[in-house]
């Protein structure tokens, strides 16, 4: 039987990490019976997500911005977008919340292959743990990260760490008042051209961000002959169960919570074609973040850019 009841976790650390975005760290309240699955490094892999309950306010999906360490500490990057996150933002270290997981499929095992990571906005969260894993594997990934403005360049601490270890490109749409010069976020194609020219020969591409941006990246790559079955994406959908029962996160005949949130582009593309139900036709956004709805990947209550939901 599935376990639908959360485990009590304690909020142990929080800090601002972008506009209306907070970086949270949790630990299990009790480890007497061993680490609970949601906080067990042996059970959690990068790209998976967990369901976080804010007592009395509900539950939503969040990606592991950092997978659990041996003490069971794990992180989420959360943007305030609705009532649930509003309450979460009022929580203080020491407060008790509920968590269950891990859920969904994480990123595949890339070993030492050469990986390009492309992230937009809070879409950095679902790939962050994978970047760390690749670094630990000495796979030497290249990372391209873009956001609406400097203030929205999230995960500052992680990025500082990565700057020392790997090549990290950073881009913003709006350079006004920026402390340094970034790549121009709206010129996604040009920036990718540059990266391809400087590095070239990637085995795999991981991309996470607004759906319009992911679509643009996929078309960019496949147009240049990059095989679709080596492109990996992460989707977000509203979720209530995380285990394939509640029905909310459907894409065609898939449920993102169990069949995703990570998808291979050819497989996802097949779903898109199959159903035509996935999205109304959208203008292919550049790396620019659609003004109208907030940028897809951070938009959800989940804020982690994986199959994160919200209400």
């Amino acid at each position: 039987m599935l376990e639908m009841t959360p485990t009590a976790v304690r909020l142990i650390e929080r800090y601002d990490d972008g506009e209306d975005i907070i970086h949270f760290t949790f630990e299990p309240v009790s480890i007497e019976a061993g680490l609970p699955d949601v906080a067990d490094p042996k059970k959690v892999s990068p790209g998976q997500f967990f369901m976080l309950s804010v007592p009395g306010k509900g539950e939503a999906a969040f990606t592991y911005a950092a997978t659990p360490d041996e003490r069971g500490h794990f992180c989420a990057l959360i943007r305030e977008v609705g009532q649930l996150t509003e309450s979460l933002f009022d929580c203080k270290p020491g407060d008790i919340l509920g968590a269950r997981g891990p859920f969904g499929k994480g990123w595949p095992e890339f070993g030492q292959r050469k990986v390009l990571v492309i992230a937009g906005g809070c879409g950095l969260a679902p790939v962050a743990a994978e970047i760390d894993a690749l670094i630990a594997n000495n796979a030497n990934p290249v990372v391209y990260f873009s956001a609406r403005s400097e203030a929205m360049l999230v995960m500052k601490n992680e990025r500082e760490r990565w700057h020392d270890a790997i090549t990290l490109y950073e881009a913003v749409d709006n350079q006004d008042g920026a402390s340094k010069t970034y790549l121009k976020g709206r010129e996604l194609m040009t920036n990718l051209d540059t990266i391809m020219a400087e590095h070239g020969g990637f085995d795999e591409v991981i991309c996470c961000g607004p759906e319009g941006m992911m679509e643009a990246v996929c078309h960019y790559l496949t147009d240049r002959g990059f095989p679709a079955d080596h492109i990996w994406l992460s989707l977000e959908r509203r979720m209530h169960c995380g285990v394939g029962l509640c029905g909310h996160c459907y894409v065609a005949h898939d449920l993102v919570c169990v069949d995703g949130p990570t998808y291979r582009w050819d497989q996802l593309g097949e779903l898109v074609v199959k159903e035509k139900f996935v999205q109304p036709p959208r203008e292919l956004a550049s790396m620019g973040h659609a003004e109208e709805v907030s940028d897809g990947c951070c938009s959800s209550e989940g804020g982690g850019g994986c199959g994160c939901s919200g209400f």
């Binding site: 009532q83 509203r238 709805v293 939901s309 209400f311």
Partner: peptide, 18 residues
């Protein structure tokens, strides 16, 4: 719940695939 409701897949940001 019912998937015919407009809020069924609506995310907190207002983004709604359906």
């Amino acid at each position: 719940d019912s998937c015919l409701m407009v809020g069924f897949q609506k995310e907190a940001s207002g983004a709604n695939p359906t």
